[in-house]
Computed example of a mutant assay.
Amino acid sequence: MKFFVLLFLLLVTAISITLACECGLEGSTSRIYRGSKVRPNKYPWLAYIRSYSDRKNGSYHRCGGSLIDERHIITAAHCVVNANGKVYSLSNLDVFLGLVKAFNVSSKPNSVSKVWIHDKYDTSDLSNDLAILTLSKPVKYTQTVAPVCLPNFENGLSTLMVAGWGRTAANAGFTNDLLEVEVDYLTKKECNDLKKDYEMKLDGISDSMKSQVEVESVAETHMCAINKKTKGDSCSGDSGGPLMYQGDNGRYYLMGIVSGSWADCGEVEEIAGLYTRTFIYKNFIKSIATNACWQTKH
């Protein structure tokens, strides 16, 4: 009898853990440059963040983010730090979930009770560009609000997806509709070569001098991606949003966080988007978002 009770408890515990770790599934029925419109609530973890510099005049900085458990949003550090290097006051941060239109916001925003900035965040090169927002109240998971999976891997990446409400070109306005764009993962060498080509072109240096030119490498905390055919990429306003890998099981994994680039989207096509690598911050994220779901690739 004791054995049966113990076995039953173990099974209940296992089932509870499995249910608690549901993540990365598409919901019910784009900075994105050369992207396409997303059907409503396809990515139920997508957050729209407004950081107000002045609520009286309504001016705010907009960013994306991702829900990783019922209380936490992961985003870019530069999304919640103002021009003076100070974190926005909690009362000036609004987080919207389950949003379809960025301009027609009718839902009440989620307030923030704490902001966690990675202690090695560097504004000069955007290394360690990561922040976690603790919501004042836990959210309820629905078909339109649910968490993304976090990855226990970083190998075998090829095609990835970015989504956001950012600008559609360097000098264009922000999009009201959520946009998405497929991007190709670049190796560190490919990314550094693109960066060198861009800086040489900017300085008027001939390609024949490439072997003699040294350029500061992309930060190790970043990965790079761009659509090699269309040059589609993330753009201003998409910062903090997700760079996603979809596994064979249909689940989406948060591989990166939109961080920036060395030129505005669309101004120069031979550049790549920079994304903060999620996997390398596993311990940092786990120490804050204890209920986030880390999964291996399927």
Rank of each mutant, 00 (worst) to 15 (best):
I68G: 00
P147R: 03
Q246P: 02
V112W: 09
D203V: 02
R71C: 04
L46M: 15
F3M: 10
G204D: 11
N104R: 10
C191E: 09
C23D: 10
C79Q: 09
W262K: 01
K114P: 00
I257Q: 00
N171K: 15
C224D: 10
Y198F: 15
C265V: 05
K137C: 01
N128A: 06
K228H: 05
S259E: 07
T276K: 06
T290W: 01
K188G: 08
S106H: 07
K86W: 02
N41V: 01
S111Q: 13
N291R: 14
Y121N: 06
D203L: 11
L99S: 11
K231A: 09
G237E: 06
C224G: 07
K108M: 04
Y253W: 08
C149F: 08
K231S: 12
A169S: 15
T18C: 11
N176P: 12
A292D: 09
P40K: 10
L150D: 03
G260N: 11
M200N: 12
T168W: 05
T168L: 13
P151Y: 03
V268H: 13
T175Q: 14
K286M: 06
R251G: 06
T276A: 13
L133S: 09
L99H: 12
D129M: 08
N57Q: 10
G247D: 07
A146Q: 10
E214C: 03
I226E: 09
Q212G: 05
Q246H: 03
S206T: 10
V12G: 02
A77N: 09
